[in-house]
Amino acid sequence: MAAITAKETRRGERRANSQYESERLNCTTIEQALGDALAAHGTTGLAIRADGDIHRFDSADKPGGNRNGWYVCPSLEVAVFGFWHTGEQHTVTTGGKSDPAAAAEARLAYQRAREQREAERRAQQAKTAEQARRWWATAGAADPSHPYLVTKRLAPYGLRQRDTMLLVPLFYDGELVNLERIYPDGAKKALFGGRAKGVAGLIGHLANAERVLIAEGWATAAALHEAMGVPVVVARNADNLEPVSRRLRQRLPDNVAITLAADDDRFTEGNPGITKARLAALTIGAKVLMPTFCADCSRCTDFADVALCRKERGL
């Protein structure tokens, strides 16, 4: 069997609708050709079905149940597969040079797969938003003695509680669409399948505010709100800083100052906290606020850490 001739796409650098790559394999059936191509990408054991339908599977580089991989065989000579989280897609044929008809089949197959995925994603997001609103409506007030709050020495600003989970409300266009769960040990996890990009929480009130901060995590936002008395938007993570910043800038009057309160991931290669905070600030013309650590500190990385450290030291 001939070797796969496709040039590997660097992860995340190619858009999903970019040009197609062909993997021409000298195989008897399209099922065999596709199975061999998938095996080269770490996926084995699939019962390939050349039925024209779109099939999902787990990509090998993600936890089980991710369903990030997909394939479709629009004919008995052509198959297309890809991975949603990397944006890559590949065309496989049973042998010989891929002709224009096969390329057209591949493009149509990919378009169908993308449309189906978008429909599934929207349906799941709507289902998760309904769950979030139901949980939020039935949750009680957060217990100030919750282990996470005690550890952080913070009041439960804007939180509710379900069983042992603290709930952080996450909004998009003014609607509650997801919840972040904070467990007693500090583990954090949003509801499965909910909207993630651009969602945000809020501590304080935006009405009549002259200055608004944007931070990553709830604890950092709570520590900043406690210390400065200004509203703080919770973006959840560094990757979400830019989309949240854009939406907030569009919503607020021009005279309201926005400041990115960065995590200083000084022990992480590339320092994503500062790097992405600066990028978000540059995008909307905002300033960046960074934490200041004690001279001998080798632990703290964000404003919540600094606030706790100072409380422990009696400063």
Score class of each variant (00 low, 15 high):
T5Y: 09
K7W: 02
T9E: 13
R10Q: 06
R11S: 01
R15L: 12
R15K: 13
A16L: 15
E21S: 10
N26Q: 08
C27Y: 08
T29M: 00
A40R: 15
H41D: 14
G45E: 05
L46W: 05
A50G: 02
D53R: 03
I54W: 01
R56Q: 12
S59C: 00
K62F: 10
K62R: 14
G64P: 06
G65T: 10
N66V: 01
N66T: 00
R67T: 06
W70D: 04
Y71V: 11
V72I: 12
S75F: 09
S75C: 09
V78Y: 01
V80H: 06
V80P: 07
W84G: 07
W84S: 09
W84V: 11
G87L: 15
Q89W: 14
T91A: 03
T93V: 00
T93P: 01
T93I: 03
T94H: 05
G96F: 12
A102P: 09
R107N: 03
E115G: 00
Q116L: 07
R122G: 12
Q124A: 15
Q124G: 11
Q125S: 00
K127P: 00
K127G: 00
A129H: 06
E130F: 12
A132H: 14
R134T: 14
T138C: 04
A139R: 11
A139W: 06
G140W: 15
A142M: 02
D143M: 07
Y148V: 08
V150E: 15
T151F: 06
L154A: 15
R160K: 12
R160P: 02
R162G: 02
L167T: 07
L170N: 03
L170M: 09
V177L: 02
N178K: 07
Y183K: 03
D185Y: 03
G193C: 05
G193M: 07
R195N: 00
A196F: 06
A196E: 10
K197D: 04
K197Y: 00
K197R: 06
G204T: 05
N208W: 11
N208E: 14
N208D: 14
A209C: 01
A215Q: 03
E216P: 08
W218L: 05
T220Q: 01
A223S: 15
L224N: 07
E226I: 11
E226A: 15
G229R: 13
P231I: 00
V233L: 11
A238I: 04
L241Q: 09
S245R: 13
R246E: 10
R247I: 03
R249E: 07
R249P: 09
Q250R: 02
R251S: 15
R251M: 14
P253E: 14
A257C: 13
T259S: 14
T259E: 13
L260F: 04
A262G: 04
D263M: 05
D263I: 09
R266G: 11
T268P: 08
G273K: 02
A280K: 13
A280F: 15
A281V: 07
P291D: 07
A295Y: 06
A295I: 14
R299A: 15
R299T: 15
T301C: 12
T301F: 08
D302K: 09
A304Y: 06
R310Y: 11
R310C: 08
E312C: 00
R313D: 04
